[in-house]
């Protein structure tokens, strides 16, 4: 009933859910793109899915801008505006990473060596699972459901796992006979992949702080 009197608030709320849906779409395109690349020895086929990821990432930016404009047009109290914008800005770095990774593969014509494929798959799998937990946590935060705090530890656990996998991949990479120049390029790619879970953990901590701030 209160929502009837606060249309801007309702609109911001629906835009946030739209942004989260768009995040999932971007994530799916990235996952498809990367899996295609890992399955094929030649990553040239990634073009279409990289463009799709870019399209969804840009749409996410547009939604975020719309939320920002609406919030600063006097929807929500200042503290909530700052909290939500901070959370969305931190969250938005992840689709940026998805896009960056596919463009790195595309523009640098990277070929993932056979011995790295399974470990990279594992790293991406855990990273994307962490992102899904983070999205669930944000949904709980905005729905007022319990369990926001509990998800922090699950996300933290996943992030540590990603760090271990990332270090293992880099160690194996530098133990291999690959061209040093390729090693550097692939290491950069793996570091950016590891950044996904780091950022998800950062967003998760922010969400938890927002929740805690609302307990007086």
């Amino acid at each position: 009933m209160l929502g009837f009197f606060f249309k801007k608030q309702r609109h911001v709320e629906s835009l946030i859910y739209k942004y989260l849906d768009n995040f999932r779409e971007t994530q799916k395109r990235f996952e498809d793109g990367l899996n295609t690349c890992l399955a094929a020895s030649d990553c040239g086929v990634v073009d279409f899915l990289a463009e799709q990821t870019h399209k969804f990432e840009s749409r996410g930016d547009d939604i975020r801008e719309e939320i920002k404009t609406l919030m600063y047009a006097k929807a929500l109290i200042p503290e909530s505006r700052g909290d939500i914008m901070g959370l969305l800005e931190a969250l938005d770095k992840i689709p940026g990473l998805f896009q960056l990774l596919l463009y790195m593969i595309k523009t640098q014509k990277l070929v993932i060596p056979e011995f790295m494929v399974s470990e990279i798959k594992e790293l991406i799998e855990v990273s994307l699972a962490t992102c899904e937990l983070m999205l669930q946590q944000i949904e709980r935060l905005f729905q007022g459901s319990p369990g926001v705090r509990a998800l922090v530890s699950s996300i933290d656990h996943n992030e540590s796992q990603c760090d271990h996998i990332e270090r293992r991949i880099i160690t194996n990479l530098f133990n291999s006979d690959l061209d040093p120049y390729k090693k550097i390029l692939l290491k950069e790619l793996v570091v950016y992949m590891g950044e996904i879970s780091n950022q998800a953990e950062h967003v998760s901590r922010r969400a938890n702080i927002i929740k805690m701030k609302r307990t007086v």
Binding site: V12, I77, S80, L141, F142, V216
Partner: peptide, 25 residues
């Protein structure tokens, strides 16, 4: 007031937007 109202406020089963509306009102 802070002590008493905090008890009620913390028990409210509302989301961030509803809590925002309640505080504003």
């Amino acid at each position: 007031l802070y002590r008493v109202l905090a008890v009620f406020y913390n028990r409210l089963k509302v989301n961030l937007f509803q809590s925002d509306i309640i505080l504003r009102l």
